[in-house]
């Protein structure tokens, strides 16, 4: 499922109308190539969450253009009919908290989407197990999420985000609940996965420890993004 990453041009989002209208996003331009991990940082109220929701096709932007892979999904209006299928097939999510489904075991948490999409259970689970192995949590494959540590849960969440091999993964503060060692491990995994699955990964964070690891960082302030070159340090 390799694609051409994600490209955003002049994205705007306005909440409300008339005098009370607030421009959460004024002009956002981003481009993330497959296999690349970029950071998205900014203070609270800068529009990070709004941008993430727009990218995640959860809320509609007001104007602008979004291209996912080689498909224009938004151009002053949605260009795809089924946003849910879009989210399911093209976008992977990794959240601040892992939000695993508590009543499914680790394997099924990862395999859920393909199974719901009609992939035979066995096949879906096998694929999930492969992913878990890649993320080094295969030994917890049969555990339920509540039995896992925070880092393990986050890795499972990443596996779930990857399972459909989406062209883009949106990670919302994936390291927030973790100590720096585990946070670093998660970032390393994200980088490895981005490489391996040729996925564009956008990591929203304000974690000072991990910002230096990105090669490129988008700063967002008052609804406007600025691209900066990151330090691209290692993960140790």
């Amino acid at each position: 499922m390799s694609g051409k990453g994600i490209r955003i041009n002049g994205l705007r989002k306005r909440y409300g109308e008339g005098d009370t209208a607030v421009d959460a996003l004024k002009s956002v331009d981003m481009q993330v190539a497959p296999g690349e991990v970029v950071g998205l940082v900014g203070p609270s109220g800068s529009g990070k969450s709004t941008l993430l929701k727009c990218l995640g096709a959860v809320i509609a932007p007001t104007a602008g253009e979004m291209v996912l892979g080689d498909e224009v999904i938004y151009d002053d209006g949605w260009r795809v009919r089924d946003l849910r299928a879009l989210r399911r097939d093209k976008i992977g999510f990794v959240f601040q908290a892992p939000y695993l489904i508590p009543f499914l075991d680790v394997t099924d948490n990862v395999a859920l989407l393909p199974m719901l999409a009609g992939v035979p259970n066995g096949e879906a689970r096998k694929h999930a197990l492969d992913l878990l192995t890649a993320l080094d949590v295969q030994h917890r494959a049969r555990a339920v999420p509540s039995q896992l540590s925070g880092g393990e849960q986050q890795r499972v969440a990443i596996a779930r985000g990857l399972v459909n091999r989406p062209p883009v993964i949106l990670a919302d503060e994936p390291t927030a609940p973790l100590d720096s060692e585990r946070a670093m491990a998660v970032i390393r995994i994200l980088n490895e996965m981005a490489q391996e699955y040729e996925t564009a990964i956008i990591v929203v964070t304000h974690d000072e420890k991990i910002i230096p690891t990105f090669k490129r960082v988008y700063h967002i302030r008052d609804g406007v993004t600025h691209e900066e070159a990151g330090e691209g340090k290692g993960f140790e």
Partner: peptide, 16 residues
């Protein structure tokens, strides 16, 4: 409700 929100976000159908 939280899990349902996640399910919806990751693309589970209403029907499901």
């Amino acid at each position: 409700i939280r899990e349902i929100a996640v399910l919806k976000l990751i693309g589970t159908r209403n029907r499901t």
